[in-house]
Design a protein around this nucleic acid. Structure first.
Lengths: 211, 211
DNA sequence: ATACCACTGGGTGTTTCCTCCTATTTTTCC
DNA sequence: GGAAAAATAGGAGGAAACACCCAGTGGTAT
């Protein structure tokens, strides 16, 4: 009995690449591939995989919502994220949504097969570099990547900052005082652990909070 | 006589994906694949492809330098960029360095084959969306994406800005006066057509100038 | 009912940003 | 060798950012 694998990724090249990598593998078989969330959900109704390879950035539904949905409705499927996003934040975030593995798209066929095999057997799998980074964070007691929740208002203001608006402009547009805007700004700096607006933009982009 | 194709991309998944896409194609054959610039140059010494599929972001050499080198030393090779970067700037930039085609990694096998075929036959090929955007820029007489050259010093300072350094800090580190740093800043704003550092960072990231 | 938290607003002071000038020296290129 | 571009530096001024405070209000969860 082979391990049944399904892929959801909007890039044909990636799908074909994985197909080729798993081709003729003695223990793994590919049962279906999906270009987007809807297609995936349709496929899941026809046959259930043991392991689902899931991209984070896809048109329509976001990977984290999709992961949460699949985890809830098909708890027996083990989800492995397959992405280019190499920030520990995303690892934490996706594991919160029930995934069991996190693999980068730079992986080769041996890594891919090993990752699939180990999460099928019940272990978790995280890309080596990211695993080390997460471990380092824990040992170092760093909170930097353990991002606190960004509130609705903060997110709103973050977006406006990112579109090159100054604090006075934001205050005017939101009908609130300059002080309030600057308070929100400062809170964003604190929460993301950055020193200035440059860091804010970089970090927020890295975390997928903007753009 | 088939069209001889070579790939240079640091992601095994992408290489395998393209291999699979071109497998059994009646008119196209893959003669070698390379994971980085060095490996590519070594491969070129053994056999010459008609078309080279080249990634922009690779460890070590950057895609544009590599393209320029190959264009100069092997003018008979037609280079097609294969990348995720979907900004018109990169199209302009890579064509400046002698490439003949620009394809996004979201392409499917038909697009891939068509693109290879058309640049082999002497036409250029640009992803449809990017082609439209470029055309729009021309018709609209927009200069926004026609980014002037960023000088070495400006690049240096841009990197320091991106690492959250303030102007006084940069001045101190480079042993130049604050005025000079601020001049370079202003010039960067002008060249990238932005209003403040936020815009600078976003634009620079978009253009691949930083990170 | 009380404790928490998001959102709001204010004050005060320093630093940095950003713009608009001008101007000299050095490097690069044809 | 002469022109153009890049790098350097200065002043002057206003706007914005950033770092500290503090404090009231309204919702909500225990």
């Amino acid at each position: 009995m082979k391990i049944k694998v399904s892929i959801a990724d909007d890039h044909p090249i990636v799908i074909q690449g994985i197909e080729k990598m798993l081709d003729n593998h003695p223990l793994i078989e590919l049962i279906h591939t999906s270009k987007n969330g809807e297609s995936l959900l349709r496929n899941l109704k026809t046959a259930l995989p043991d392991v689902l390879l899931l991209d984070i950035q896809m048109p329509g539904q976001q990977g984290d919502e999709l992961a949460a949905y699949v985890t809830q409705h098909y708890p027996e499927i083990r989800i492995m994220v397959l992405t280019n996003m190499d920030h520990p934040f995303h690892v934490r975030n996706m594991f919160k949504h029930g995934v069991k593995g996190y693999l980068l798209k730079s992986a080769d066929k041996y890594e891919l097969a090993e990752a699939i095999d180990s999460i099928y057997k019940g272990s978790n799998y995280i890309d080596r570099l990211l695993r080390d980074q997460l471990l380092y964070e824990v040992l170092d007691n760093k909170k930097a990547h353990n991002i606190p929740t960004i509130t609705k208002r903060e997110k709103e203001i973050l977006d406006m900052i990112a579109s090159e608006m100054t604090s006075p402009q934001i205050a005017k547009k939101l009908f609130i005082s300059l002080s309030t805007v600057e308070n929100h700004r400062s809170n964003l700096f604190l929460k993301l652990g950055v020193k200035n607006v440059v860091g804010l933009i970089s970090k927020a982009a890295q975390l997928g909070l903007i753009k």
